[in-house]
Amino acid sequence: MTLAAVRRSVQSSGKLDMFVFALTGFLIFLAIFGPLLAPDSIYRSDIGNALQPPSGAHWFGTDDQGRDIFWRLVAGAQATLLSSVLIVAAYSLIGVAVATIAAVGPKWLDELLMRITDIGLALPGLIVALGFAAALGPSLESAIIAKAITGWPVTARLLRSILMQTMTAQYVVGAQVLGASKWRLMTRHVLPNSLDILIVKWAGDIGATVLILAAMSFIGVGAQAPSAEWGAMVADAKGYVSSAWWAVAAPGAMIAITSVAFSLLGDILQVWRDPSLRDSR
């Protein structure tokens, strides 16, 4: 049974929708309040307690510094998930701006922006982001900046084609006949009827960005050692994987769960937006 088939069978019951909403809601709650909930001890070494297996006192065990992994995961949600949300928001803004200028501007500007977008699409995003992050110095901030700069081309390309399509809609032609200015056509008629697809893309993008941000931290160009960012936690613990699997498995599982949860949220929103997809998947 493929993942798609599993998804289809569960999804038809509507229970998956509710589960995904609850899960993503919970993750967002952690991203906002996690650092407030976690005790300060998660940033202090307690070598005597190092590499304890999961137990009642330490639900997910402890890492090589004796820090409680469960609470580090709670606190680290912010570094991983909130950063991903910021990244997606930032590059979506760039993408929307580029797409809008390309769609309404003169043809040469459209061509210019789309060729730049093509270059952006052709470059392997992760590699370029790694380069940026390395140049800016390894830190969570540079990883965020690097991903925000390299993430916009897909949004720009997608939105431009949707804008072009919406611009031929009859109600847009109607507003043109009514004498609406280009600005009014865009802000009142074209954009409001084009942006909803981005909400779908945002959810999926957050899932993908969580994965990339964690990967960058894992490689060492993102969040650095004391941080409870999940990718950094996996990187810290990878040396002990044979003796303390939980120190790698717990943050790894969180990355996977978060990434999948937001991807599924994207799929669900897509169906809500366009119910005709409901039976076709």
């Binding site: 809609a169 009859q170 109600y171 847009v172 109607g174 507003a175 009142r188 008629h189 409001p192 009827n193």
Partner: peptide, 8 residues
């Protein structure tokens, strides 16, 4: 059905 902006 297509000549009226659905969001107005």
């Amino acid at each position: 059905f297509s000549s009226l902006n659905p969001r107005m």
